[in-house]
């Protein structure tokens, strides 16, 4: 099954099919009868097997936000074509992403500079705390995307690394 959702770090493969009356969820070899009756303002009744649950759902792009039993969850849909293409290209992650939203306090490196694992690349500030981002491995700084003082969101690519030539 090629569709997937990411919930936190975990990836869940699943499929959806239609039954005579509603839908079926294909998950871990199980077939579960499901249905969703949507009401106003994101409120909906979810049927999962024998259970009927009130939920609130909102979507934006590939993100699905679900309020279930008092908790809000964010799931990110992964289209099979994206997921399978990414699997194929896989390998070492060369992008260094922001662990949290914030701004650049100090940049310690320049594009083209060779860095060694553990070397400080930049200092960012988030929520009144400074965080040091260091090199995950040896390499060369391919590009720096933000300047000192600029703000960014979580998961923004701060800089990219290429292998030492």
């Amino acid at each position: 099954m090629q569709h997937a959702f990411k919930l936190g770090e975990a990836e869940h493969n699943l499929a959806l099919s239609r039954s005579a009356k509603a839908y079926r969820l294909h998950l871990d070899g199980q077939l579960i009868d499901i249905d969703l009756k949507t009401g106003a303002d994101g409120r909906a009744w979810l049927t999962v097997g024998e259970r009927h649950l009130p939920v609130v759902i909102a979507t934006r792009g590939d993100e699905v936000f679900v309020h279930l039993e008092g908790e809000a969850y964010a799931l990110r849909y992964q289209h099979p074509l994206d997921r399978l293409a990414a699997q194929a290209h896989g390998g070492a992650e060369d992008s260094i992403r922001a662990p949290m939203p914030g701004s650049i306090v100090a940049l310690s490196v320049q594009a083209g500079e060779a860095v060694s694992k553990g070397q400080t690349l930049l200092v960012m500030e988030s929520m009144k705390m400074e965080t040091t981002i260091s090199a995950p491995r040896d390499g060369v700084i391919a590009a720096i995307r933000y300047e000192k003082g600029q703000t960014f969101d979580r998961d923004a690519v701060l800089l990219s690394l290429e292998p030492l030539s």
């Binding site: 090629q2 099979p80 074509l81 399978l84 293409a85 699997q87 194929a88």
Partner: peptide, 9 residues
Amino acid sequence: ASSEEEAIA
């Protein structure tokens, strides 16, 4: 395609 899965997708 880089894999059979991708080709079929």
